[in-house]
Simulated assay, not measured.
Amino acid sequence: MSSYLCPLCQLPLKRIERTYKCTNNHQFDVAKEGYVNLLPVQHKRSKDPGDNKEMMLARRQFLNGGHYQPMRDAVCELLSDLLAEQSYTQLLDIGCGEGYYTSHFAQALPVTKVLGLDISKVMIRHAAKRYSDCEFLVASSQRLPFSDNQLNAVVRIYAPCNGEELQRTVKDNGVVVTVTPGPRHLYQLKAGIYDEVKLHDVPVEALPGFELETETSVAYPMTLNSEDATTLLQMTPFAWRAPDALWQTLKETEQFDCEADFTLRVYRKKA
C-alpha cells in the first residue's frame, strides 16, 4: 500500500529514490532532512502557514523541560493498550509540531510506522532533522494524503482536523485519541489576563462514524522558572491578550506555579 496519496489528484504516490510521483506525473521531492511537502500552493491560506521558527524554538524548549511529560506518558499508556494486539500498525500524529510527542510514540509504542503531519514547514523541517525514527510530512489536516482505511490510530494533541477525513482514513475499529485543555488548564496564567477566570469547557467532539469510548483527566501542578513561564504564555492562544504587567511579572519571577489540566478522549471507529 502506498504511504501517501497525491494531494492534487488523490492517486497513490510511489517513491522512486528521492521523489514521490503519481501516474499523472505530479512530483514531490523528499527534502534533504527526509520529509516530503504535500501541501500544494493552492491549498495554502498564507505563504508560510503554521508556526514560525521563533514559536518552534520556544515550544521545543518548553517541552524539553518535561512540563507536559505526564500528559505525554498518559497518552502513550492509552495507545499502548489500544494497539497491543495488532500486527502491522500505522499511527498518525496530527499537528505534530517539532516532533516531541511523535518521536516518543515511535520509541515507546508497539507500532510499525509513526507518521507526523503538520502544516508548518519550519516545524516539520526541524522534526525530520532531529528524529529519524518517524516519517514527517507537510500537509493539511483538512485533506489527509492517506488512503481509505489506512491508519490504525490517530493522535491529535490540541490539533484541529476534518472529521470526515478521519472517518475515511482510519480503519474500522481504529481509534482517534484527542487531547484538549481541561477545565483548570493554565488557570494561574488566565488569572493574570482576565478579571474573572472561567473554567474551560470541554465538550465531547462529534466525530462522524466514531463513538466516544473513554475519557480521562490528567491534572498536576507545574513549577516553572521565569523563562519557561514566559515561553508557556508565548505558546498559548491568549498571548496577544496578555497585559504588559503579566509579561513583566513572568520575566521577573523566580518561580511561577501553574496548573496543567488535560482531557484525554478515545474515539473508536464503528465497524
Rank of each mutant, 00 (worst) to 15 (best):
K21L: 11
D201Y: 13
V41A: 07
K14Q: 15
K269I: 13
Q69Y: 12
Y20Q: 05
T249K: 04
A245P: 07
S87D: 15
S147K: 07
L117F: 10
Y131D: 06
R60F: 07
R130K: 15
P70C: 12
N24E: 15
G174N: 01
D261C: 04
A242Q: 04
G95R: 00
H126P: 00
Y101C: 05
V176T: 07
N64L: 11
L186W: 01
M55H: 12
A108G: 13
R130F: 09
P12Q: 06
L137D: 00
A191H: 08
A106Q: 00
R45Q: 15
M235W: 04
H67G: 09
S3Q: 10
E259S: 13
T169G: 03
T236N: 00
P221V: 01
Q107Y: 10
Y20K: 09
L63E: 04
E211R: 13
I124K: 01
L233R: 02
P203H: 07
N225A: 10
Q248L: 13
L207Q: 03
P40G: 11
F146G: 00
N149K: 10
F262K: 03
N149W: 09
A108N: 03
Q255W: 08
Y220T: 01
Y158H: 08
D51S: 02
P12H: 04
N162T: 05
V266L: 07
P40I: 05
Q10E: 11
T263A: 12
E54C: 01
E164M: 08
E17T: 13
D93Y: 03
L82P: 00
V155S: 03
N24V: 06
V179F: 01
K269Y: 13
